[in-house]
């Protein structure tokens, strides 16, 4: 059948496919396609570093971006990973966001935002959990109390009214 370690093809291996399940995800001769390599029940898609997307990107699969995306990314039920080569200029909505590359724009996650070493975010983060590694760059606001389901605030530099932060936190526990 398929080998587990090939379930996610590294983007560095060449310009991998765009989003989705089309035949353009196929690798070179002798390689398995991403679709063949996926584990059942957990789809992961790569956007290779030569890929540029301008517009809206929606989906219900985990996604790793090594290329450039400008516009809007919505993966509300899935994990979005911005790889070390990834450059995003977009509003991002996802379940979890892991940043190893560069993001310019607001990031909203229902679970967690994780900015790793050398990752950079210029924008506002709304998420119940935020982890920022030493060596990461961040400029913007972090709001861990507001419900992350809604869209990010258009201008986070204005005064914000937030619903019962501590009570909500206590209730969640």
């Amino acid at each position: 059948m398929w080998r587990r370690d090939e379930s996610v093809r590294p983007a560095a291996g060449g310009p991998s496919a765009g989003v989705g399940k089309g035949p353009d995800q196929a690798g070179g001769p002798g390689q398995r396609t991403a679709a063949e390599g996926r584990r059942p029940g957990r789809d992961v898609v790569d956007i290779g570093k030569s890929v540029v997307i301008k517009g809206e990107l929606n989906g219900c699969e985990d996604l790793t971006i090594e290329g450039r995306v400008e516009g809007k990314i919505e993966l509300r039920q899935n994990v979005l990973t911005i790889g070390p080569n990834g450059k995003i200029k977009a509003e991002v909505f996802a379940k979890s966001v892991v940043v190893l590359g560069e993001v310019t724009g607001n990031v909203t996650a229902t679970e967690k935002v994780d900015i790793r070493d050398n990752g950079a975010v210029d924008g506002d983060i709304i998420a119940p959990r935020v982890a920022i590694a030493e060596g990461a760059h961040f400029r913007g606001s972090v709001d861990m109390q507001t419900g992350a389901a809604g869209p990010a605030k258009a201008d986070a530099k204005t005064a914000v009214a937030k619903p019962e932060p501590k009570a909500a936190q206590a209730a969640a526990r």
Binding site: H137, S141, V142, D143, M144, Q145, K157, V160
Partner: peptide, 18 residues
């Protein structure tokens, strides 16, 4: 930005940190 400070003000104190 310091991760520990984000956690302290955001999680423990319920602040919005800019």
């Amino acid at each position: 930005v310091v991760g520990a400070n984000v956690s302290y003000f955001g999680e423990q104190l319920g602040c919005k940190l800019i």
